[in-house]
């Protein structure tokens, strides 16, 4: 709880970030989970819109960070465990499980989440992890597609995502027609929406580090999704977060899985390249 007597003013934001970065950027002091280091800060390449790429982790309280850094306290692991179970459960008309084709997820799914969204030539569009999983269910298993925000889908994206934890986000935006999706996502990112007339960039690029009411603004990075959110008391997808941010500015949000959100996800992944995958991250 804080009741800010105006110590920080606009413009002091950048200074505040710089002031803390001395400590936080100390590379020998990276957070780690079971010996796996999390790169919560990454150097921004030339021409990147941000001076430094910073995970949402850095903007959360010590208490929230601690939840993420211990798999026993991380409430997201309930769903991870259910995803692990489903991995080896046969379903659908082909009588197959994920394991039937992909074997040990720790091997076959390593690095997969870090590279999502990924161009899918046959579909002629980028596939998010959700898209790919449903493709396998309907085309390979003869099973029904899962709903985007269903526990089944969240559990599986969390379980598959976990196999990339600690690996740097690295999307291939050169593949196929990825560039046009990236462009569309970028347009979206800088476009003002809603009755409050705000763009993602107004909050997450121009004001990260600043408090907006009770919330400390981060760069709105996607490296921790699906994420356990204390406010939701639940795991949630990246697209649920997009919708939440659009609701807050009183904009008519797009649907989860819509082309608009897939484009935005593509662009955001690129903005966060170099950050470690933190799935399942914990946020307030």
């Amino acid at each position: 709880m804080r009741n800010l007597p105006g110590i920080f003013v606009a413009g002091a934001a950048a200074t505040a970030i710089l002031a803390t970065s001395g400590v936080l950027a100390d590379q020998s002091n990276l957070p780690s989970i079971d010996g796996v280091e999390l790169k919560t800060r990454a150097e921004a390449p030339k021409d990147h819109p941000l001076p430094e790429i910073i995970s949402g982790f850095e903007f959360r309280t010590k208490e929230t960070q601690a939840l993420e850094l211990d798999d026993f306290t991380n409430p997201g692991f309930l769903l991870v465990e259910s995803g692990e179970e489903t991995w080896s459960t046969a379903e659908g008309s082909a009588g197959k499980s994920c394991e039937s084709c992909h074997g040990d997820a720790a091997e076959s799914m390593k690095g997969v989440r870090a590279a999502m969204p990924k161009w899918n030539e046959a579909a002629g569009r980028p596939f998010t992890l959700e898209n790919q999983i449903n493709e396998c269910r309907t085309e390979q298993m003869g099973a029904d597609a899962w709903k985007w925000e269903s526990d089944d889908m969240l559990a599986m994206t969390a379980y598959v995502g976990l196999q990339s934890r600690g690996m740097p986000v690295d999307v291939d935006i050169e593949a196929g027609d990825m560039m046009s999706w990236w462009e569309k996502g970028k347009d979206f990112y800088y476009t003002r929406f809603g009755q409050l007339d705000l763009a993602c960039a107004n909050c997450h690029e121009a004001n990260y580090g600043n408090y907006i009411r009770a919330d400390r603004l981060s760069q709105g990075q996607s490296n921790g999704f699906p994420t356990y959110r204390l406010k939701w008391q639940k795991m949630g997808s990246l697209h649920r977060r997009f919708k939440g941010c659009m609701d807050n500015i009183r904009a008519e949000a797009f649907k989860r899985g819509s082309d608009e959100f897939v484009a935005l996800e593509t662009y955001l992944a690129w903005r966060g390249e170099g950050l470690s995958v933190e799935t399942p991250a914990v946020r307030n």
């Binding site: 009741n3 800010l4 007597p5 105006g6 408090y211 009411r213 009770a214 603004l217």
Partner: peptide
Amino acid sequence: DRKLGNCLACHTAADLANEPFHGEVGPP
């Protein structure tokens, strides 16, 4: 009021010090 001005989302004001959660996006 959060459903009206919600000015404290971004501003502080000493006169409103008893209200919780002042933002720091705008000047006091």
